[in-house]
Amino acid sequence: MKLMESCSARAFVVSSSDNVATLLQDVEAGVEIHLIGEVGAARHVVARESISASHKVALVRIPPGEPILKYGSRIGHATRQIAAGEWVHLHNCASDVDERSNTLDVRSGAPQDTRGAYE
């Protein structure tokens, strides 16, 4: 579902201390996302790139090494600088325990490290 109307793009914030929100629709770059749920200081964030529904958008600038917060809890850490409005996923956020997930394809989640088994 592509929404051209910027006013109807929404993302859900679980806890007011979170630095990411979950998109309820697919958005394109430049679209203003209206934040709902336990909204903190920011009420809106502008998407810097296209992001799929159910994926996360950064609400503030997150420096490398800093925690990614959702549900008011640490879900991992930034592996590089993340700007507000950027898609937060495997390419810029890593688990504190799971080392394999960052080797997966960023869009499909398909494994890359077992390709040899199919040959």
């Binding site: 979950t22 879900i75 495997l90 890593a94 799971d98 394999r100």
Partner: peptide
């Protein structure tokens, strides 16, 4: 860790 390709494609980034 109990997370699958579908979970990641569906927007979940970490097991946490």
């Amino acid at each position: 860790w109990s997370a699958s390709p579908g979970n990641f494609a569906g927007g979940l980034t970490t097991i946490e």
